[in-house]
């Protein structure tokens, strides 16, 4: 037997590949790396667009609102939000569009209603009822296919 040749199909021998998978970096190094990344991220965040609210003392920008919408919808509906668009000019908010990844067997109409409900609640909680009235009346929900990543119509 020639031990100096790769696998019969030209691939690397399985025992060698298995050994290579043990070349992981020490856990401490990985933890230090992740810590360093987390520390530097806040400084890299883009400045947000200030949004009007019912309470002049409350200052909220679009980046914060997008974050709250994405996390609240995900945790409530259980679908990932892959697009958040806030319509309107300046500090005014006139509409919200949410894009999500659908799963098989999802009842999209029912799920969309749930998403609208969550979005409306977040808008009221964060900015107030009066200033968000127009936006809450114009909440668009779009779905993306989980495999093709195409937007469903």
């Amino acid at each position: 037997m020639n031990t100096g040749t790769p696998g019969a199909d030209g691939s690397t021998d399985a025992w060698l590949v298995e050994a290579s998978r043990q070349l992981d970096e020490p856990t401490g190094d990985v933890a230090r790396l992740i810590d360093a990344i987390s520390t530097k991220l806040p400084a890299m965040r883009r400045p947000g667009r200030p949004l009007a609210s019912d309470d002049p003392a409350v200052a909220v920008n679009d980046r914060v609102l997008k974050k709250l919408l994405a996390t609240r919808v995900r945790s409530t509906v259980g679908r990932l939000v892959v697009n958040v668009a806030l319509d309107g000019s300046g500090a005014d908010l006139s509409g919200v569009t949410i894009g999500l990844i659908a799963r098989y067997r999802d009842d999209l109409r029912t799920e969309a209603d749930r998403v609208r409900e969550v979005v409306g609640t977040v808008l009221v909680d964060v900015l107030g009822e009066t200033v968000t009235a127009a936006a809450r009346a114009d909440i668009g929900v779009h779905w993306q296919d989980v495999y093709t990543r195409e937007w469903l119509t």
Partner: peptide, 29 residues
Amino acid sequence: DDELAAAAAAGDPDAFDELVGRSAPVVLR
């Protein structure tokens, strides 16, 4: 990973944290 990246791009910081947790060890090695 791709779903998490899309969510992170949309503004979900927790999705990015999860993606970093998965990707950082692979990139480092």
